[in-house]
Design a binder for these strands. Structure first.
Lengths: 189, 189
DNA sequence: GATTTCATTTGACTTATATCAAAAAGAAAA
DNA sequence: TTTTCTTTTTGATATAAGTCAAATGAAATC
């Protein structure tokens, strides 16, 4: 699955691909395990082979705000913390028992320096993330709570019914109660 | 200024830098000129030497929503449209008489293929943009109208008093009237 | 300087969503 | 099964921000 993801973006040769994959490690992590805490500097980038992850932060009043969901088949990270080695703005956790492939910052730098194509890959992934987050901003900035939920259903169809209501509500910038009411009305439509 | 921006991110040699700069063109554009329209595929990436730009889109009811401001000293583009050659989600316009340096997609591809370091530069710029937009989402998602305005003042101190009120209001996801009232109260503080 | 045009402010009223509190439903543990 | 704990739903009320409309102010044009 990771292999497919990589060659879809950049035409690596067989040898290059094997070299790159050998820098990753397979990790089995259990539900609710935290991969990075807020203010820590991220040392690893993850690819979600199986499972679901999310990033979140705590408001002053202690409430968790989900910032992003990471579905299987995607990279998962506090991207700016990993690439720029700055303190993470988020916690990163796994919401179910999951299988991840991880690569350390050191090994990633080796690959980025060794392969021109690897830099290209990293650029393409960054732009993909940028595009996705732009979609989220557009959905959240000027839409009603109901329209935001519709965005959620199209952007994360799998996730929408697999994670606690409160996580989704905070991701969409609304309260749990509001989301519960929206879902109820959605059925009556 | 463009030169400084580039060498700050990647240590290009003198020759590399000259080669890269020779692929850019200087453009003088007038206030309110539109650089890309929604649904067009972006052919150029711009660097703002002098002036201010913004990206925006139209809601169904015809209202303009500002998506981003581009201050002098930054790249300006519909990034996903330029790099992925997909239809732009936005209009891109200049808000004052400006001086821009532009590079076409074709020339950019030449540079990206020629220089490993150029790919790195593009990656770093993409991640910078990603970081900035993440900050915006955080500000907008769960803060009051007043707090959002405070974010605006810190992220775009120069711009906050140089562009029409309505542009800023829609950027922050509030109405013009609300922003006007916030500014009034801000003075009384 | 007067006039038209565009941008901002102010006021009165409405509404979507938040908040607070409690009940119901579902899941996990005993 | 029963008990306990967690998550979701429902109800009543409050409030921040939106809408509509008019007034004021500033800039551009005659």
């Amino acid at each position: 699955m990771l292999t497919d993801f990589l060659i879809d973006l950049v035409p690596f040769t067989h040898d290059e691909l094997n070299d790159i994959l050998s820098h990753f490690e397979k990790e089995q992590v259990q539900k609710n395990q935290i991969l990075i805490k807020e203010s820590q500097i991220s040392t690893k980038l993850y690819f979600v082979e199986k499972g679901i992850g999310r990033s979140y932060y705590l408001k002053q009043d202690g409430k968790e705000i989900t910032q992003w969901f990471f579905d299987a088949g995607n990279f998962m990270s506090s991207a700016d913390s990993f690439f720029q080695q700055t303190p993470s703005l988020y916690y990163l956790e796994v919401l179910e028992d999951s299988i991840l492939y991880s690569i350390t910052k050191g090994k990633m730098d080796v690959l980025l320096n060794k392969y021109h194509k690897m830099e290209k890959l990293a650029r393409l992934i960054s732009i993909q993330m940028l595009t996705k987050i732009v979609h989220k901003v557009n959905a959240i900035q000027f839409q009603t709570a109901r329209e935001r939920y519709d965005y959620m259903l199209t952007e994360f169809p799998n996730i929408s019914h697999q994670v606690p209501l409160g996580h989704i509500a905070s991701y969409l910038g609304m309260t749990q109660e509001t989301l519960s009411r929206i879902r109820k009305n959605e059925l009556l439509k």
